[in-house]
Design a protein around this nucleic acid. Sequence first.
DNA 1: TGATTTGTATCAATAGTTGTTACAAAAGTG
DNA 2: CACTTTTGTAACAACTATTGATACAAATCA
Lengths: 143, 143
Amino acid sequence: MASNSQFAVAVHILSMLAQKSDEKIKSECIAESVNTNAVVIRRLLCNLQEANLVVSQKGATGGTQLTKRAEDISLNDIYEAVSTGEVFSLHPSKPNQDCPVGKNIESVLCNLQKDIDDVIREKLVRYTLADVLESVENDVVLA
Amino acid sequence: MASNSQFAVAVHILSMLAQKSDEKIKSECIAESVNTNAVVIRRLLCNLQEANLVVSQKGATGGTQLTKRAEDISLNDIYEAVSTGEVFSLHPSKPNQDCPVGKNIESVLCNLQKDIDDVIREKLVRYTLADVLESVENDVVLA
DNA sequence: TGATTTGTATCAATAGTTGTTACAAAAGTG
DNA sequence: CACTTTTGTAACAACTATTGATACAAATCA
């Protein structure tokens, strides 16, 4: 299914912050690692800040840091901070309510959306940012 | 996350075929229920045909039918027939390989994509088209 | 005061989705 | 053999979302 890369980039950003958790990192520096424009990074950092995962500071010595330990940030926290919709969409037009299938299919599909979202979250809750960083540093599979 | 409605529409289509499994249904009739153009339906029917879930017949008495019983079609079969990507994407540009995080984050995220796809499939395998039709006919939650 | 960095608005480029028209190919009917 | 109907498919327009880029105000520190 079509999707955006915001979750992936957010994990990348936070992994960098976790790696140097005692420093403030600049958006420009993260942008170089992700290979994109610094504004793209700052936009995501705003979302992560709203979710209370990071704090940013303006000014000459500014930058961004985690608000908590990497062990205490789950991938579900990150998913919630940046996710913008469900895995699949319903059709833009309302189905024909005079058709027995059209009349009820929406609610059935809507519940299925929630079911799927739940299993994704259950999976993501099991991993922390610390797990990701460990996998990245040792170049091994997340487990 | 951004996504398309093809899976949802495919489930709608197949529910209609399952409901009248002894008849050939025309794309125009399905389009009226979904509330869209018949070509949109036919495009999806082509995918479903490639996946061997339905057969279509041209001509004056043409239309489309299921190839198997609704009990023998899982939602994962439908998902496979129409899905076009992962739940989240990686960033379009390759990360900076000189950065310790950038160098390995892709493979970690790629494995995570597969993990998530797996849990979705595990969920979808548990439901059949017959389950969906039953939920639709009784207007109850899929269980 | 000046330099630096975040936060945010705005716009362009691109890509994907959906809807629409058009028409060839297939299949049945008189 | 025409004629009608329906699928299959191409082509294109409209719309939306994503990403990248420029610009600049606000904040912060030296």
